[in-house]
Amino acid sequence: MITSASNMQMKNLVRLQKKGRARREQDVFVVEGMKMYREAPREFIEKVYISKSFSEKAEAGELLGGRNVEVVDDRVFQSISDTKTPQGILAVIRRQHYTLEQVVGGEKPLVLVLENIQDPGNLGTILRTGEGAGVTGIVMSADTVDIYNPKTIRSTMGSVYRMPFCYAEDMDQVMRNLKQKGISVYAAHLKGSADYDAVDYRGSCGFLIGNEGSGLSERLAAQADGYIRIPMCGEVESLNAAVASAVLMYEAFRQRKS
């Protein structure tokens, strides 16, 4: 049993929780809790850590049979956890890699293109909602928050394992790629001339979603096939990025299933 926070494995787990660079260099990320462990692809699980108190539960043996497991003193486990009330199980997962072709390919794709999203919770919620709404892939600009940030991972509720995604250095190339594939892309924009539910999304299409504070850059928005808007009452100008994404994704979902 690991009883010291000075243990090299414990120090590395803290680095993985806090540093995107460490996650990139080791090509892994950390998940916490029963749900995130249960849903993780078995072949991507590198190692599992459980608290001493969790190891004494009847479900531990059934859940962890045959796994490479380290038992950690409860106090030390608390120090490596990113949550205030850890469930007693934490796993190191190998990162999955998708090409742009995998993310935007397929038959009749529905794609999200995210530019400079900065809030980890927003990004995680977008992934989770995207899976629910039938989105086939998500492309993110290089300056978007790290998808493997612990807060993002928790917000995905497991969707990070199943939703194809990639980061792109050259968003102009992404747009050219989408157009070459016949994917119509609509920018969620305050200058939108059409209400979001007045456009046909039954074919191959995608949505551009911009930064929480400043929206889409003019350069990227100008490459869209059209600007769409979500009507607002009162003095509200715009919705939270995750909420706006959900509205658009579920309108496409509604149209496609009818």
Rank of each mutant, 00 (worst) to 15 (best):
I147H: 00
S141G: 14
A133C: 08
V135R: 07
P120Q: 07
P120A: 04
G124V: 05
A142H: 14
T144P: 06
I117P: 09
A142Q: 14
A133R: 13
S141A: 15
V145I: 15
N122W: 13
T136Q: 01
G121L: 12
T125V: 08
I126K: 06
S141R: 09
V145D: 01
E131W: 06
I138S: 10
V139A: 03
D119V: 11
G124M: 02
T136H: 02
G124R: 01
V145P: 03
G134E: 06
D119H: 11
L127F: 15
G124D: 12
Y148W: 10
S141T: 11
S141Q: 00
D119A: 00
T144A: 09
L123N: 07
T125C: 08
G124L: 06
I147G: 03
L123F: 08
M140L: 14
R128H: 07
G121I: 10
E131L: 15
D119G: 03
G121R: 12
L127T: 12
Q118C: 11
D119N: 15
V145A: 02
G132F: 01
L127V: 13
L127C: 10
L127H: 03
Y148K: 00
V135K: 13
T129P: 02
G132W: 05
T136W: 06
T129W: 01
I138N: 05
Y148E: 04
I138G: 02
D143Y: 12
A133H: 12
G124Q: 08
I117T: 08
V139K: 05
G134I: 12
N122A: 09
G134D: 04
E131R: 15
P120D: 09
E131S: 07
R128G: 10
D119F: 00
G130Q: 14
R128F: 07
V135I: 15
L123S: 09
D146E: 06
I117N: 10
L123D: 03
N122R: 13
R128V: 11
D119Q: 11
I147C: 04
V139I: 07
D143K: 15
S141D: 09
L127R: 03
I117H: 10
I117W: 08
G134N: 13
I138P: 01
G134K: 09
P120T: 01
V145R: 09
T125S: 15
V135H: 03
T136Y: 08
I117C: 11
N122M: 05
T136P: 01
V139R: 05
G130F: 13
T125D: 05
I126C: 08
